[in-house]
């Protein structure tokens, strides 16, 4: 019962702040709403008995990624940049994509196993299980992801590097 109440409260906050993030005008405020959403996601992990994931969610997303987001947003002067004009065709394409994605997700969730079927073990997911899974069964995707991140980082450095001797 407690879990249900928590779930509902967290969901309302998560969706609410996600909406606020979308409609907000001030980029810094938007970023902060996103932070709140991430917190709720961490809360979901906790209710699902995965405290490790919750901690990692906060450390990685709110602690590192969002700080870097803020970092960039703060350096951009919103008054001078103004709202970039979005062509109508882009809007239409975006809306279509979003609709398709929504259909796919809803379809996937309802047809396969349903919302309530996310497995929660009584003791929760232990750190040992996470580690074993990452380094045996999911070894290749795990390594590929890190290579992807490395590529992105090198790309960013190359793009930003302008002090050439």
């Amino acid at each position: 019962m407690t879990e249900w109440i928590l779930f509902v409260v967290l969901s309302v906050i998560a969706i609410g702040s996600a909406v606020m993030m979308l409609v907000g005008r001030n980029p810094v405020h938007c970023a902060l709403w996103l932070v709140l959403t991430f917190f709720c996601v961490a809360g979901f992990f906790l209710t699902l008995g995965a405290p490790f994931l919750a901690a990692v969610q906060i450390i990685v997303y709110t602690g590192a990624i969002m700080i870097l987001f803020l970092f960039v947003v703060m350096l951009v002067n919103p008054e001078r940049e103004g709202e970039p004009a979005v062509p109508a065709s882009h809007r239409r394409a975006g809306l279509t994509l979003a609709a398709v994605l929504l259909v796919v997700m809803v379809g996937a969730i309802t047809t396969r196993s349903g919302l309530g079927a996310i497995p929660t073990e009584p003791g929760g997911v232990t750190l040992r299980q996470v580690g074993t899974a990452l380094l045996t069964e999911w070894m290749l995707p795990f390594e590929l992801t890190s290579v992807l991140l490395l590529v992105a980082m090198i790309g960013a450095i190359v793009l930003a590097r302008r002090r050439i001797e």
Binding site: N77, L159, A160, R162, R163, I164, E165
Partner: peptide, 15 residues
């Protein structure tokens, strides 16, 4: 002082 733009590569505009 070497921080002056050296052209050639596309510059990211900075204030």
């Amino acid at each position: 002082l070497a921080a002056e733009p050296t052209g050639d590569i596309h510059e990211i505009e900075t204030d």
